[in-house]
Write a protein that binds this DNA or RNA. Structure first.
Lengths: 106, 106
DNA sequence: TAGTATACCTAGATGTCCTATGTATGTCAA
DNA sequence: TTGACATACATAGGACATCTAGGTATACTA
């Protein structure tokens, strides 16, 4: 309906990965924490999104094993991913401002 | 993924109807105008939404014929609709604030 | 040793919105 | 006067994002 609504999940994931690499489960926890429990993403949502981002080369993945023997897949955002993130952020600002204007009864 | 994302189209429509009654085609034009061309809603999106809102008693409709002979369906928001709108607005604020926090790298 | 947390994964359903199309009338220019 | 475009309504079918529900496996804790 809008010119283009920012696909929120992938945008949020890219934003989280901007600072440092993270593994899937951690992304879910961080989103929950930083959003003060507004975003409670399901694993069934996140993992397919991560695979998509990897396929599109917006993130890279590396496998690592903890001292306790757990295997994790760490994701890091690529240059391309950062550019896409910037684009999505702009779209979000536009979208958000427009909604606010309508709600305010401009 | 979020606690609940506000269904944007119905929220925006209710918000537009808050001030005065409007007919479908006019809603599309007003959305475009007030959002500065960010929201270019399609008729195929709006009309089913209006029918749904009517069915849920969030709006009422009345038919009117212009002096030129055109038939229009004017929609007005109900008390129930106003309550739902308020709810959706709160959800939007919560959602929007959370996204901003994540993007800011909180 | 049973339950919970961690950590990954996929298939299929759902819901929102879009594309495409249809009907009918009004207006304006060629 | 006719052909193009705007107005005004409508629906069917598809695309896409996210959710539900399930699965596997290991580690910790009561």
């Amino acid at each position: 309906m809008a010119k283009k609504e920012p696909a929120s999940v992938s945008m949020l994931v890219l934003a989280l990965l901007k600072g440092r690499e993270m593994y899937g489960y951690q992304i879910i926890e961080e989103l929950d924490r930083r959003s003060e429990h507004v975003f409670q993403m399901k694993e069934g949502t996140l993992y397919p999104v991560l695979h998509g981002l990897e396929k599109d080369r917006l993130v890279t993945a590396r496998e690592a094993v903890t001292d306790k023997g757990r295997t994790r897949r760490y994701y890091a955002v690529t240059e391309k991913g950062l550019r896409v993130l910037e684009e999505k952020e702009k779209e979000w600002q536009t979208f958000s401002r427009a909604v606010t204007a309508i709600l305010a009864g401009a």
